[in-house]
Amino acid sequence: MNIFRFAGDMTHLISVLVLLLKIYATKSCSGISLKTQELYALVFLSRYLDLFTNYISLYNTLMKLVFIGSSLAIVWCMRMHHAVKRSYDKEVDTFRHYYLVLACFVLATLVNEQFTLREVCWAFSIYLEAVAILPQLVLLQRSGNVDNLTGQYVFFLGAYRAFYILNWIYRYFTEQYFTRWIACIAGIVQTALYADFFYYYFISWKNNAKLQLPA
């Protein structure tokens, strides 16, 4: 594992911790899209089907468990926890995420490495992860103001994707590794979705001002 991959995994982990911290400390999930969180839970459940059949390393197994567990816990909190669910911005979180699921499923049955249940599920999870942030970005755009922890959550998620691209470039030159073209294309699309957010994040950081997205 190279430094970029590790940095990517760590920023991903930090993003999850920031989100859990926000929900736990403020007992509020305002500014967080439940639809995006549901999509991530689906992403991890369909990607890590190989959890018990395909052992790679203790690190991989633990990280998979953390991502499945934390995404389910966040969805549970936002739906069931009496205080947290009251702060959920239901009226603003109206993205039709079922269409994303349907489109990614159709794409996965058409474009995959092998037409087997596991490979179709893997491709599905890759496509769905690429677009899963959309309901969250739309929610932030609509509400305009972004609180500190929510901004940091999205920033770390975007950083995770950027590090993964550096990881692939590194692996391409050091290992002649370029078999994961489905993941690479989807990963580039996914990272590009953050470009706009990053732009405003850095402006607010440079001016030491609160993060605001233009309507």
Binding site: D50, N54, N60, E113, Q114, W122, R180
Partner: peptide
């Protein structure tokens, strides 16, 4: 068909 490669990334 080629066997699908090991997926060592998360």
């Amino acid at each position: 068909t080629e066997p699908s490669a090991v997926k060592d990334e998360l």
